[in-house]
C-alpha cells in the first residue's frame, strides 16, 4: 500500500508538478523537432524514458563510487552508453521509427532532462526511487511530447498516427514547421501555468 502511494506521488511529480517539458522547460530541442507526428513523439518518449530509467538506476548504484570531481564526465559516459545501445536496437528492430527520428536519437546523450535527473536526483538517492524517478519523468516527457505532437499532427498534416482525418483538405503546414512547434508549445506551457495558478489560488 505504502509503495503504491509513493508511486502515485512520483507520478504526480513527474507528470504534473515538475513536468520536465512544460514546467522545467528542459529538452526543448527534441520536443520541437520530434513533435511533428504522434508516432515520432511516442518513439522519442519511449527511447528517452528507457535511457532515463537505466541511467538513473546505474548512476544511483554508482553514486558512492563516482568521484565528485569527474561526476559529469562519468554521467555522460554512462548516458552515452545507453543511448548508443537503444540507437542500435532501434535501427535493428524498428528501422522505420529510427529513420524518422534520425539524428535525435543519438542527441538524447545531451538531452538536459537526463543529465538534470542524474545530477539532481539519482546522484543523491537510492537506486529504486531513482529508477522510479526516471520512469515518471520519462512518462511526463512522453505525455508532454504527445500533447504537442497531437495538435501539430492534426493541424499541420491533417492526420493522426498517419490516418487521414479531413479527407484531403489542405493542412495548415505552419504547424508542421518549427514556428508552429513554438506556438503550440507556448500555448501548452501557458495552459499548464494557468491550471497550476488556479489550483494555488484556491488553497
Amino acid at each position: 500500500m505504502k509503495e503504491r502511494v509513493s508511486f502515485l506521488a512520483f507520478l504526480k511529480n513527474g507528470v504534473i508538478d515538475n513536468n520536465p517539458t512544460f514546467v522545467q522547460l528542459l529538452g526543448m530541442c527534441p520536443t520541437l523537432a520530434t513533435s511533428t507526428s504522434l508516432l515520432n513523439a511516442l518513439g522519442m518518449g519511449a527511447a528517452a524514458t528507457f535511457v532515463l530509467i537505466c541511467s538513473n538506476l546505474v548512476i544511483s548504484l554508482l553514486r558512492k563510487i563516482i568521484p565528485q570531481k569527474v561526476r559529469i564526465a562519468a554521467y555522460i559516459v554512462i548516458i552515452a552508453g545507453f543511448v548508443t545501445m537503444i540507437d542500435l536496437l532501434m535501427q535493428a528492430f524498428v528501422p522505420a521509427l529510427s529513420n524518422s527520428l534520425g539524428l535525435f536519437i543519438p542527441l538524447i546523450v545531451v538531452n538536459c532532462i537526463i543529465l538534470a535527473r542524474a545530477e539532481s536526483y539519482a546522484s543523491k538517492n537510492k537506486p529504486l526511487p531513482s529508477a522510479l524517478d526516471g520512469l515518471t519523468m520519462g512518462i511526463g516527457f512522453t505525455l508532454a511530447l504527445s500533447c504537442v505532437a497531437t495538435v501539430r499532427e492534426i493541424l499541420g498534416s491533417g492526420t493522426i498516427l498517419g490516418f487521414e482525418l479531413f479527407g484531403g483538405v489542405a493542412p495548415l503546414t505552419l504547424f508542421a514547421l518549427p514556428a508552429g512547434g513554438f506556438l503550440v508549445l507556448g500555448f501548452f506551457i501557458a495552459l499548464v501555468q494557468f491550471l497550476k495558478d488556479r489550483k494555488g489560488g484556491e488553497k
Binding site: 554508482l62 563510487i65 563516482i66 568521484p67 569527474v70 564526465a73 562519468a74 559516459v77 554512462i78 552515452a80 552508453g81
Partner: peptide
C-alpha cells in the same frame, strides 16, 4: 574510476 566506467560501458 573513469577508465573503469568507460571500459565497462
Amino acid at each position: 574510476t573513469l577508465c573503469l566506467i568507460a571500459g565497462i560501458t
